[in-house]
Design a protein around this nucleic acid. Sequence first.
DNA 1: AAATAGAATATTACCGATACCATTAAAAAA
DNA 2: TTTTTTAATGGTATCGGTAATATTCTATTT
Lengths: 345, 345
Amino acid sequence: MEKKVTTLDDVAKKAGVSRITVSRILRGSPNHRPRTISLVNRTAKELGYRPNAIARAFRTNKTGVIGLLVQRSKEHDLLGEIFYSTLISTLETRLIQKDYSILLGGVSYEDIISRQMPSIVQQGYCEGVVTLRIDDDEYLRELNRNVGSVVTLDFKTQCVPSVSVAHYRGGFQMGRHMIQLGHRKFAFLTAPNPSGNFGSSFDGFRAALAEADLSQDVPVASCNWASAQQPAIQRLMTTGHDFTAVFCANDYLALVAIREFRNMGLRVPEDISVAGFDDLETSILSSPALTTIRVDRKAMGEHAVDLILGSLKSDRKSKDYTGLNIEIPVELIPRDSVIPNKRNV
Amino acid sequence: MEKKVTTLDDVAKKAGVSRITVSRILRGSPNHRPRTISLVNRTAKELGYRPNAIARAFRTNKTGVIGLLVQRSKEHDLLGEIFYSTLISTLETRLIQKDYSILLGGVSYEDIISRQMPSIVQQGYCEGVVTLRIDDDEYLRELNRNVGSVVTLDFKTQCVPSVSVAHYRGGFQMGRHMIQLGHRKFAFLTAPNPSGNFGSSFDGFRAALAEADLSQDVPVASCNWASAQQPAIQRLMTTGHDFTAVFCANDYLALVAIREFRNMGLRVPEDISVAGFDDLETSILSSPALTTIRVDRKAMGEHAVDLILGSLKSDRKSKDYTGLNIEIPVELIPRDSVIPNKRNV
DNA sequence: AAATAGAATATTACCGATACCATTAAAAAA
DNA sequence: TTTTTTAATGGTATCGGTAATATTCTATTT
């Protein structure tokens, strides 16, 4: 006695109608006698009938599956980054409501360079794909060639609809905030340029400096992810700079920076103010509580879902979303890691 | 000009062989003339043929998809929890290597109570399912009835194979550690009992107290997740307890506790030592760096994958994994949030 | 050269649903 | 009542693969 699944035919036979009638009724077609409808529904329930999604997908060419593509790498794992896990959670919740499921896919840096499509795409399981911070235009175009609908999250591009963060604006706000508190000399802490988002933050920051007629010649420490952040930070300190505030590309780096500064005997924020970007759930819990730029990840996820679903429906004839970019606004969250500068005020 | 996909028939026609020959050759069957093999391979490449995974899944009844089931709730989102995101990342990486993909599924608490199967299961997309900390035996059994292979992560059970954490052992180690540092009075900080894991930690902790002939009557503060942790913690402090060390069910709660204690004017760790459980990536960055119990999440993910794949292969006839439990060992990571007790030493 | 074994390839049926078109039954109009 | 229209239902082909079985072809044996 293996598993025996009930099919449409079983239901049809038992109910004494044709298979297609059962199919239509179960899908909610109204063009049937109430008697037949209730008979079929009852019979289906009795037999414990469950439509076979694979068969349906096969026939209709609609899988009800959206791929979620993240970049994977040895040293640093986007999926494991808390910023993204919140995002993913939002995507899942909202897509389920629309009867879609999420299929996870990882691509390595090498895959991207060699234009290697992930297996979930090759196999044709996905009706559409949402990418997380995949920043290679050519790769996105190739994806689009394979999947029909692609939406990019956390990277602004012209070749597919995208949802991005107002990094420039966030950097600008942080710049103003620090200047307002009396800081005049700054440093940046970043990771090796993922997707230029960090670059935008710093451009915005510099714009604030320009506005205040301050030197935009800001020293930059570029850290690797996994480890080896210390050298970059130490180098920053030992090259004779006299900054009083550091703007970090994200909250995680800010925490690292705070630890390193303290290891060097500096007090944060008394000697150096440190700010982050993202406002992770835990950033309010750090000590000092982190001054940062809040990003509405929920809104990001929701917009991404709306974009991808909208772009699915459009059978070439309806609205074209290509190049449509939604920029999520940000908000400065002043807390305790950035304080007025005693030296320059 | 819509999308035209090349099928086996197209390749077969162009190569002048039968469809099934193409199918077999592309799947690597050796029983063919080398000439035919290379001809078919060449033709397939020329036409850019990609096997249709849905059609194949339909025919073979093998989807190559593993479901990942997490509990979802308004106030607290497991998917968004960093502990799990690392786990998920590991699962994904390892499953891809075995040519499987991950389909994400969420279940609410209500779903579990009402034995409502998630859509990814109902639809029959999954060959197997890995659950994350779903702690209802009856629900797991029902799942197993629907999917064939189920493996539970972060919850120990007898009804399906499971991978769990040595919570008891971890609690025990932490107890010993604190006692060794001179602490005699303790408190627990936990969340409303998810899955009894937290309970095991505290049982282990108490066992260490018993070993040292200390009172096991430890006050407990039970916090909600999202917010409202303050009241529970304040209540703990204002009921005349005189503990010097607090063992928290996880690192996140430990951070919350530290903040609350400080808000009440207490110093951590000078006045109160605080310890967590999990060793999140960021826990070494907090100040003070968190003393905690390290859980090898990578090992958890790897074992889960091995279990689920092994249990897929077993067509009832081979090994039966039911009730097999793998317990992941833990390790005490002493850092700066637990220090020797000045009062009692 | 005929018989036979084994390797290579082909035929056919089928997985479970839906699309499309045809048909029948019931209601409305003549 | 007969015809026409409309609602309800049925028949058949089909999506793109693979399993099982049948057939051809090649090589070996006698």
